[in-house]
């Protein structure tokens, strides 16, 4: 992994995202064009040294037309990666593309519920910045690779979802053990009573 831009610069860029990027993707309102996400992604890929959006990818985006929050996260990431740092330093080809079309972003959208959280909530903003850097093989300037990964772990919503699912299972297991113990106690008490 290599050193990327400073986290502060990324956070500032995200906080100052133009309103156009938060428009409803793909749809048209009265007198207002909807956000053309495919064009946005295409521009980003070309500007960062990658190939244009393929027909298959266009189809994928069209199929996900209803996944509003996922599409909004894509739009936010387009703005984030359009930073002069990435245009100048061009991450390894394919990494941005891979990240934008990865199932991770769908999970992220489902965890957050509202993509706007990645702009308005300081922790989620930091999470998206760190996640984006990590996806393209970078860590924030001034940090080490290890520290960057550790800090991302403290913010990772997808990881939290997995933890919550697992702890629910642990709770369920403990509940079963407790019920079994109570049942056993009750049986022992009943057999003692009948003996007496």
């Amino acid at each position: 992994m290599k050193e990327g831009p400073s986290l502060e610069a990324m956070l500032d860029r995200l906080a100052a995202i133009p309103g156009d990027f938060m428009r409803e993707p793909g749809k048209k309102k009265k007198g207002e064009a909807g956000l053309q996400l495919t064009a946005l992604i295409n521009d980003l890929l070309l500007d960062t040294g990658d190939l244009p959006v393929s027909a298959g990818e266009i189809k994928t985006l069209e199929n996900r037309n209803e996944e509003r929050e996922y599409l909004r996260i894509l739009s936010i990431l387009c703005h984030l990666f359009h930073d002069p740092f990435f245009i100048k330093n061009r991450p390894d080809r394919g990494l941005i593309r891979k990240f934008l079309f990865s199932p991770k972003l769908e999970d992220l959208a489902s965890c957050a519920g509202d993509a706007e959280l990645f702009i308005t909530d300081p922790d989620r903003r930091e999470e998206l910045c760190r996640l984006a850097l990590n996806a393209v093989g970078l860590y924030p300037a001034g940090e080490t690779e290890k520290r960057g990964r550790e800090r991302l772990a403290t913010l990772d919503s997808i990881e939290r979802k997995k933890i919550l699912d697992k702890t629910r299972q642990a709770q369920e297991r403990a509940r079963e053990i407790r019920e079994a113990m109570l049942r056993k106690e009750a049986e022992e008490a009943a057999s003692k009573m009948s003996r007496e």
């Binding site: 990881e159 403990a174 053990i177």
Partner: peptide
């Protein structure tokens, strides 16, 4: 690791694991 910033929220999760 994940709840180190919001440690109060993670306390119930940690306790759930300890319960057994």
């Amino acid at each position: 690791r994940n709840f180190s910033r919001e440690w109060i929220r993670g306390s119930g999760e940690f306790a759930s694991i300890c319960y057994r």
